[in-house]
Design a protein around this nucleic acid. Structure first.
Lengths: 189, 189
DNA sequence: AGAATATCAGACAAGTCTGTCTAAAACGCC
DNA sequence: GGCGTTTTAGACAGACTTGTCTGATATTCT
């Protein structure tokens, strides 16, 4: 018994994820996606209401996997400070991939019109990141949890940008060490 | 004597700069540009070989002005450490503008095809930033100038990303303070 | 004034992209 | 087996984009 071929919907999502991330949402047409996915054009519009919905599904998938990866790395620790630092481990994992091209939400937003689903996905992701860091900083008992979360997020975003723009994934380790310094030198109650 | 109307070329560059930065290169068509610039379509192709050349000119202008702004802020100091910190002042100036949308080179690159002028402009800008920071770190006599320059650039990029993605321009001041800590605690020869 | 340069207005060509439609075939489940 | 769901192939429409072309007009420089 051979493994069954994934559904057209699944193949569309996988192909869209790869192409949208690698080349940008605007640059990749649906003809290209259906060709590389080996799917009929009608199947795209059967499974999704249009390209916009496919883009939204692509970003939702990215958000979910990012969250899962991060939580997986954090689960190895119980100390909230260690959990904060583990956020960088999740980033380290992907930043070294040759296909790494930075934050998919930021990238999609650059091409998006105001009020689009892409902007909503960016907001959602940034909200998750901010609140995740803040709640850990509160849990760790920092005197100024907002300030600590802001500094960690700054370093996180810096690592993302550096890995993307300078093809310099080592920046993630650097950011983690700077974050460790910040976390160790910030006053706690 | 009233002020003369700028040339069609100048109006095209100003309009393209505003629209490309605000809405993205792909999202803005040449019809939109010539309409808002009050210029005939023929004049666009008379002054530029095509949209690509207009985009390249837009990015060149951004690069030049960024460099000028940075050098202007650095010129207020003689100590290379102060000059390194002054880099953030130049960023602070623009990050607070309501029109701020992050790094124009990174944004244009997201939409660009491999081998495009946009990617070349990004490379050029990143090369300038890296070498500017490195040469100041060398001048300041740091034992590990590359490491210092990498850390400062990480904070710089983090501030850009934070200001853009979270509409949080205060991150620039935060990054500058973190950079000050890094610069003051790094060993010098 | 005269010549070279720059700009104008808009029609038009050619390409790309999303989305629709049709009619048939394959799949999966009861 | 039979029936609803999913998929297929590709033609076609409609919108949008860049770029060309024409011929007249304005500006600038010598």
């Amino acid at each position: 018994m051979s493994t069954k071929r994934p559904s057209a919907r699944q193949r569309l999502l996988e192909t869209a994820d790869r192409l949208f991330y690698a080349e940008g949402v605007h640059a990749v047409g649906i003809d290209r996606i259906i060709e590389e996915a080996g799917v009929a054009k009608g199947s795209l519009f059967y499974n999704f209401s249009g390209k916009d919905a496919l883009v939204a599904a692509y970003l939702e998938g990215r958000h979910q996997r990012r969250r899962e990866r991060t939580e997986h790395h954090q689960a190895a620790f119980s100390d909230p400070v260690d959990k904060l630092l583990a956020t960088f481990d999740a980033l380290d994992e992907v930043a070294h991939l040759p296909t790494y091209r930075g934050c998919p939400f930021a990238n999609a937003s650059v091409e998006a019109a105001t009020g689009s689903a892409e902007l909503a996905a960016l907001e959602s992701f940034r909200g998750w990141l901010r609140e995740m860091l803040l709640s850990l900083a509160v849990e760790a008992g920092y005197a100024d949890p907002e300030g600590v979360a802001d500094r960690v997020r700054l370093l996180y975003d810096g690592a993302v940008a550096n890995a993307q723009l300078d093809s310099h994934p080592e920046a993630v380790r650097l950011a983690k060490e700077l974050a460790r310094t910040v976390l160790e030198s910030s006053p706690r109650t």
